[in-house]
Design a protein around this nucleic acid. Structure first.
Lengths: 190, 190
DNA sequence: TTGACACCACTCCATCTGTAGTACTACGTT
DNA sequence: AACGTAGTACTACAGATGGAGTGGTGTCAA
């Protein structure tokens, strides 16, 4: 088993790409080799099995989906009203949609989780942590709404993003934009 | 190309099963043969290609996800208040989760749509029609809320169902139940 | 010089597709 | 009632693909 950490990470990133493009079932050592532009057989040398590769990809996606520091800083500036809340949510949606590969790959992993308990566990933990962190961030920000606001917003926004990524013809960009506004508006507790 | 309509439908239903269990990439003629418990080669005789099978499955799932007449009738009885609205939504969630195979298969199809424009078109049309019908049903029912209520509810409930089906450990049954109540409560326009 | 790794090549194996060929069944004809 | 025919179920095979794993060679750095 090879050790080179840059190469290993490049392979995991390539695996995410393959997941999004070809689906979970299309994730083969060979496909990853091709996506990472390394010689045939390389992925074989770095991962003991497909499962291994899959779970490592599951762990890695979240690292890349998390907001960067710059974005986090914005949480604090700009007021604590609904308008600012909405602005942040638009930003969130845009950020995730910009890394659409990651979002799609995560969807594939979720579906694959149905078949692999081990993977399910990894993904569940990651997402649980993400939910908790979003709730905590929101609480610290002083923005209106309660923790349920955060959870319900996540539900609706996630599906909206998925809708836009998988069936772009369903909602127009403008409809999607307005839906975000409405969701923020209504989901803030009275 | 064989004609026997019962067999054809049995094969399409088997294809849905395969989609949910093995993913879009796992949908092969052979796998469908096995799921339908018919001899090897049968699916080959009934469908011209994998694409053909895939799109037909896409059309069929929706038939099976639609509420039966009995459920539709319930729309009218039981009042027009929020409590009744919530009851209907719980029923909706339970009904879809009971046919979890169909929901998962539809998710697989959405992801596969990313790669197959033809399939995307079929699925988009179906879902578009479903959204419109839900809006129309709601309007006719006299229940509180506007069309945006319906759309946003669909967004959130769909992701909630997905969460429960793919990562059952994330929300407890009770949390999920309460989320439905909150969503109905808050998404009804003021 | 030695060890780790990149790269390449080759073999084995699983699986899928498409189709040819045979057997069965139902139905209509005479 | 016997027969013929059409459509289908089922079986088996040929051809092709693609992936896994591994051994070997070259290269670079300690």
């Amino acid at each position: 088993m090879r050790k080179n950490p840059e190469r290993r990470q490049a392979l995991v990133d390539a695996a995410i790409e393959v997941l999004a493009k070809e689906g979970a079932r299309g994730l083969t050592f060979r496909a990853v080799d091709a996506a990472a532009e390394v010689p045939t057989g390389t992925a074989s040398n770095y991962f003991s099995s497909r499962d291994d590769l899959l779970t490592q990809a599951g762990g890695r996606i979240y690292e890349r989906l998390l907001p960067d520091d710059e974005t986090m800083a914005q949480l604090d500036v700009g007021g604590q009203d609904r308008a600012h809340f909405a602005r942040l949510m638009h930003e969130l949606v845009d950020r995730i949609m910009a890394f659409n590969t990651g979002f799609l790959a995560l969807l594939e992993l979720r579906l694959e989780s149905t078949r692999r308990p081990e993977l399910r566990e990894v993904v569940t933990k990651r997402i649980r942590a993400d939910v908790d962190q979003n709730i905590a961030n929101h609480a610290a920000s002083g923005l209106p709404g309660d923790s349920t606001t955060v959870v319900t917003l996540m539900l609706a926004l996630n599906w909206l993003i998925m809708e836009r990524l998988t069936l772009p013809g369903l909602f127009s960009e403008q409809e999607a934009h307005e839906l975000v506004d409405v969701l923020v508006e209504r989901l803030i507790a009275r």
